[in-house]
């Protein structure tokens, strides 16, 4: 449906996005996960055809979007709701009407406006001046404005950053409605749990690059002061890691770097945690995905040969091992 191909985007001479390939297929909800400043907003703007990539191309329905007419066509198929959306200096209802008028609509059905606002739980805000709304309210109204345009692809940049409870519920309603309509959704978040909750596909973005690893085994941690090798609390466990950073961070343990054994290993891996297998499934690429409860849930992948050699079943006691340097810090 919508894709970036061999895209590099520079800003003031610095590469802010480097995406060899990113596809948003029909019927999917995709999440871009990454810490603040990782380039999520830039990638969404490139997908929305609001910015043209320095190199590479945006594709809509398999066709390159290059000329200004093609870009306008793409912008009418794809709508972006920014993290801090801008509403124009008029009432909430007028903002929605204005969005339709900007596309050349002559007649605007008031019921359509009310329905869009009701869907995000903002029906009571219709007559309010848009610039007097709170951050969460403005975000909901901006989502309603986007829904009114019935895009084929809706891009949501950190849709829960200013969210109150009403906004979370509204987003749930919206995503359900969009699934029914068959709208492709791509949202960005720096909170992995949100990404898991709202989307069917997750990509990790770090420094403008899509990381090859899956965003599994990501944990929000508070790194103690210091440099080099140290321990960090993850739930009830303490992971040995190597980093020069301190303070709040996200750490990731790539599933491919976790060894599975029936007994503790005599190895250089500083992290060894006993646990119990909670799920075994195929990952679609000829490998076996294991979920192991070691106090927190860790995902690892092994070959079918290893699965049979270790005679693993759900409930089997195993030991997971990984080196301190395998833990990545964002």
């Amino acid at each position: 449906m919508l894709a970036l191909r061999d895209v590099t985007h520079e800003y003031l001479g610095r590469v802010v996005a480097d995406i060899p390939a990113l596809d948003l297929p029909a019927g999917t909800t995709t999440a871009l996960v990454g810490p603040n400043g990782s380039g999520k907003s830039t990638v969404l703007r490139l997908l929305a055809a609001v910015e043209a990539p320095s190199r590479g191309v945006l594709e809509l329905h398999g066709r390159a979007v290059r000329s200004s007419a093609e870009r306008l066509h793409a912008r009418r198929a794809v709508t972006l709701v920014e993290q801090h959306p801008l509403l124009f200096d008029m009432t909430v209802a007028a903002n929605l009407t204005d969005a339709l008028r900007l596309r050349g609509a002559r007649r605007v059905d008031g019921r359509q406006i009310s329905e869009a606002l009701e869907l995000v739980g903002a029906g009571s805000l219709a007559a309010r001046p848009a610039r007097a709304l709170s951050g969460g309210e403005a975000q909901r109204v901006a989502i309603a404005r986007a829904l009114l345009l019935a895009p084929q692809v809706l891009l949501l940049d950190e849709p829960l950053s200013a969210a109150d409870r009403a906004a979370r519920e509204a987003l749930g309603n919206v995503l359900a409605a969009l699934r029914d309509r068959g709208t492709v959704v791509c949202l960005s978040s720096h909170v992995l749990e949100e990404a898991y909750r709202w989307s069917s596909r997750i990509f990790t973005l770090v420094d403008g690059r899509l990381e090859g690893m899956t965003p599994e085994n990501l944990f929000r941690v508070d790194l103690p002061p210091g440099t080099g090798s140290r321990e960090v609390r993850v739930g009830p466990l303490r992971f040995s890691i190597v980093t020069d950073r301190s303070g709040p961070a996200i750490i990731a343990v790539p599933p491919e770097d976790i060894l599975v054994s029936r007994t503790p290993l005599d190895s250089s891996a500083l992290n060894q945690f006993p646990g119990r297998l909670t799920a075994i499934s195929e990952d679609g690429h000829g490998r076996i995905r294991l979920a192991v409860d070691v106090g927190v849930e860790l995902i690892t992948r092994i070959t079918p040969a290893s699965l049979s050699r270790l005679e693993l079943q759900v409930g089997t006691g195993v030991v997971l091992s990984f080196k301190a340097v395998a833990v990545r810090v964002f």
Partner: peptide, 15 residues
């Protein structure tokens, strides 16, 4: 505010 132009663009307004 650069968002003014971006918002008009993403709402599908012609140039």
């Amino acid at each position: 505010d650069p968002r003014v132009r971006r918002t008009a663009l993403t709402l599908g307004a012609p140039a």
